[in-house]
Design a protein around this nucleic acid. Structure first.
Lengths: 241, 241
DNA sequence: AGCCGATTCCTCCTTCCGGCGGATGTGCCG
DNA sequence: CGGCACATCCGCCGGAAGGAGGAATCGGCT
């Protein structure tokens, strides 16, 4: 067995309360008398590489310990229930259940849950959605590791945390006109390349109505053509391709 | 940080049955018989978090050692020159100089350089561009760490390596009609939401010519409207937003 | 020389889009 | 109740987009 896979197996033991490693050696939490209990961290990210990497560098910190890893949203919620970590690092794009939904479910069970969104996406819409869902912090994967550690400690202490870049995007987002549900649906179908008629058929409304919504959509997005609207929606992360 | 202390920290919360990692006893029992110098690895990724994480888990392997980290394409080329690593892990989206360009520069100096693209992007266009630039392997960040290690060893041994998923995308790409340079320019401007007239003005050609190119573009992409073309281009990674 | 692909330009015609002006019903909230 | 936002629909019209078809130039390749 390689050293890495050995450690991975062992950290899975650590992720299971009530179970002890077969050797019977006590967990080190009890051994460090002078230090207080480390911050228990759960990681949710669909990329094993990123997950392991994050876990590795977080575990290098004296006051933090990764207690579990989830590869999708459902697993994240389940593991959170079982482990009740102090802090959860959550990616947004994940299979089965996306990060925003996972955050909502966790927050429904514990409104004080400390969740940090860690993602590559800096679209203002993602930031807005993540924080609205109840995340305490939002950091991009371009943060310095030290800053992430600081963020973890801040969230553990009950504080919020935003990178300046993220805060700026959020400020931008809040001063944009929000789209109605119908407008979002139409924008999504528009971004799939459908014509007004096709959109109407998909939503069981007339082409006239589609045009009507399209009009307000253009005004809110401040564009003059559907192509422009698609380009803007792509930049802002308003639609999924 | 030494490898031994790293392991010690990682195992703070989990005992290692049958082994004593921090005792100073060498762990390389399986590999020690035929052990040679470790594979020297250079990492290029614009996210410090990912870089450090990758470095941490690669350094856990007995036969590999990270000798350098680059945060952008220029740095990657410079560090490669200085270090001459056995294997380079290269992200595609990086500031200053993107991964494809960095690979080309390195390959220009040493056509035998072992470069592995490690990225989240599974667009067929990215895969094609990366391999055309001279990468020996292309893996997505959703690989299992063990598979990445296998890939590193394969490339070090002079072999190529492709994930099945990546190979399938590549096969798809080669049977698509390639776009001409002009068509790519027009597609890019189209994806920015410009009208035929605006595209013509940008490229100093008449609107008629734009329409003419647009026609062949639609045929090659197998679409019937500009909106569809934008949607397809976004999915395939043909354009940058 | 002949062929082919890329690029440039054109006409004719139809369809669709986008801007203009409305209208109606529904539900919510002070 | 009277506004307000939202969603649904309508006609009109000019202009943009898209389909069909042709044609000239240039460079490369056989």
């Amino acid at each position: 067995m390689t050293r890495a896979s050995l450690i991975a197996r062992l950290s899975r033991f650590a992720a299971m309360p009530g179970r002890k490693p077969s050797s019977g050696v006590p967990l080190e939490t009890e051994a460090s008398a002078t230090r207080s209990a480390p911050i228990r961290v759960l990681i949710a990210d669909d990329h094993p590489l990123v997950r392991r990497g994050l876990a590795a560098i977080i575990n290098m910190e004296e006051d933090a310990a990764v207690v579990g890893e989830a590869g999708d949203g459902e697993e994240a919620v389940m593991l959170w229930r079982r482990l009740r970590p102090d802090v959860t690092l959550m990616d947004l794009r994940m299979p089965k259940l996306d990060g925003v939904q996972a955050i909502k479910r966790i927050r429904a069970e514990d409104p004080a849950a400390g969740i940090i969104v860690v993602t590559t996406f800096d679209h203002d819409e993602d930031i807005y959605a993540g924080l609205r869902a109840g995340a305490k912090a939002y950091v991009l994967k371009d943060v310095q590791p030290e800053e992430l550690f600081g963020c973890i400690r801040a969230v553990h202490a009950g504080q919020a945390y935003l990178q300046p870049k993220v805060a700026a995007k959020l400020a931008q987002r809040v001063q944009e006109e929000p789209l109605t549900e119908r407008e979002e649906q139409i924008l999504q179908l528009l971004a799939e390349g459908r014509s007004n008629r096709a959109i109407g058929q998909a939503l069981f409304i007339t082409e006239s109505t589609v045009k009507s919504h399209m009009k307000s959509l253009f005004i809110k997005l401040d564009v003059t053509s559907r192509a422009e609207a698609i380009a803007l929606a792509a930049r802002r992360g308003l639609v999924k391709f």
